[in-house]
């Protein structure tokens, strides 16, 4: 069993999920309550990782974060090493790659919140900030969970971006999905099988968490 790869994968998935929740909440709120051309553009850009081959994304990130580009050189100067082929680089790639999985459920969740709740809250003198945290977010906690779980599982299942951007450095950038690929290349099917099983188990457990939840709020919650 490849514990180094498992540990790295979990760290990557947890880190990506944490960063994306912070990024996705305001972004999704803005998309759900916005309108106009800017909103359409932002939505399209956010959805881009859904349709692009991961290798395309990985390639551009590799170029952008590597020492051959201006931003990459700046990063080298600040960090002392290039972001590509490092764990931090993987984290950046994963955040971008999983962005739509974090944002989309939240956008639908926010859009489904009845505007009358927001109006009732404002009519009681609550600031938009208080309304968001005390009314909107609790009413969308199902979407929040979906967003977190999808981001987590999607990161666990990443392959193309991680391979392009991280190389395949055991202990530093080798995730479970890449370790599995290596085992198969070595014809070590027994080890490959164990790694694959872990991936199946982690994903299944996460999805069970979503589907076993009793569907949000009950009926008759309206006045």
């Amino acid at each position: 069993m490849d514990f180094a790869a498992l540990w790295l994968t979990l760290r990557l998935a947890v880190g990506t999920t944490a960063i994306l929740l912070v990024v996705a909440l305001p972004l999704a709120w803005w998309i759900a309550s916005g309108r106009g051309a800017a909103r359409a553009l932002v939505q399209a850009v956010v959805a881009l990782p859904l349709v692009l081959p991961p290798t395309v994304l990985g390639f551009y990130l590799l170029v952008a974060l590597g020492p051959l580009s201006a931003p990459g050189r700046l990063l080298v100067r600040v960090l002392g090493h290039p972001l590509a082929f490092s764990f931090a680089g993987l984290l950046v790639g994963s955040v971008i790659y999983s962005l739509p999985f974090a944002v989309q459920p939240l956008v639908s969740g926010f859009a489904a919140v009845d505007g009358d709740y927001v109006e009732a809250s404002a009519g009681l003198g609550a600031s938009p900030w208080r309304t968001f945290w005390s009314v909107v977010l609790p009413l969308t906690r199902g979407s929040l969970l979906t967003s977190a779980v999808l981001t987590f599982t999607h990161t666990v299942g990443e392959f193309g971006v991680v391979l392009m951007l991280g190389g395949n450095i055991p202990g530093a950038t080798q995730t479970l999905s890449i370790a599995l690929y290596d085992r198969v290349q070595e014809f070590n099917y027994a080890a490959a099988n164990r790694t694959a099983l872990v991936l199946v188990a982690v994903s299944l457990a996460a999805l069970l968490l979503i589907y076993s939840r009793r569907g949000g709020l009950r009926r008759g919650d309206l006045v």
């Binding site: 009845d114 009519g123 003198g125 609790p138 006045v223």
Partner: peptide, 29 residues
């Protein structure tokens, strides 16, 4: 904006917050 006005409203479309008890609803006000 509504929340900055010295005005409080119970409109026709007003809703109780479904995730809060009655006490917490009143307390929210």
């Amino acid at each position: 904006p509504p929340h900055e006005r010295p005005v409080r409203t119970a409109g026709q479309a007003a809703r109780l917050f479904p995730h809060m008890t009655i006490r917490r609803n009143v307390s929210f006000g």
